[in-house]
């Protein structure tokens, strides 16, 4: 189930260049504590920036800092989609998520990735 279809899902499914809002954290123990410490709490906004070259850890922006987490950890974060994706131009005042713009502008090649994605699924 893709996040873009249902508007709700887990953080590991979110495509790069998307803004999401946290609904909750399902992890347990230390991982849960870490995620909470980093500010991943209900209502926090996360902007997914990129995947690592090998595809696994992802880099996100939250509370104006960059965070990396593995997909298995991202899977425990329930999110809701706020921003439709790489082509949505993010204008105007947005205190913590002003970076949305750049991916629309520079990462033109995502167009192709996007295509191949939808073909496979």
């Amino acid at each position: 189930m893709k996040v873009s279809e249902t508007m709700e899902g887990t953080l590991d499914q979110v495509r790069c260049g998307t803004l999401v809002e946290v609904l909750g954290v399902d992890a347990e123990g230390e991982i849960r504590r870490r995620l909470l410490d980093m500010g991943i709490v209900k209502g926090a906004r996360i902007y997914v920036i990129r995947k690592a070259p090998l595809g696994d850890p992802i880099e996100v922006e939250i509370n104006s800092f960059f965070l990396t987490l593995r997909l298995e950890e991202a899977k425990t974060v329930r999110v809701r989609l706020l921003d439709a994706g790489p082509f949505h131009r993010h204008r105007g005042p947005h205190p913590n998520f002003g970076r949305g713009m750049k991916h629309g502008r520079h990462q033109w090649f995502r167009r192709f990735i996007h295509f191949s994605d939808s073909n496979h699924s």
Binding site: A52, P53, E59, R99
Partner: peptide
């Protein structure tokens, strides 16, 4: 915060240093 946050050094450098294609070779 400033109304429009402009791209800083870190954004630009990260786009080169850890992007999908050049990330591994640079590493």
């Amino acid at each position: 915060y400033p109304t429009y946050k402009k791209e800083d050094f870190t954004d630009i450098l990260d786009r080169i240093l850890i992007n999908r294609f050049t990330g591994l070779p640079i590493f």
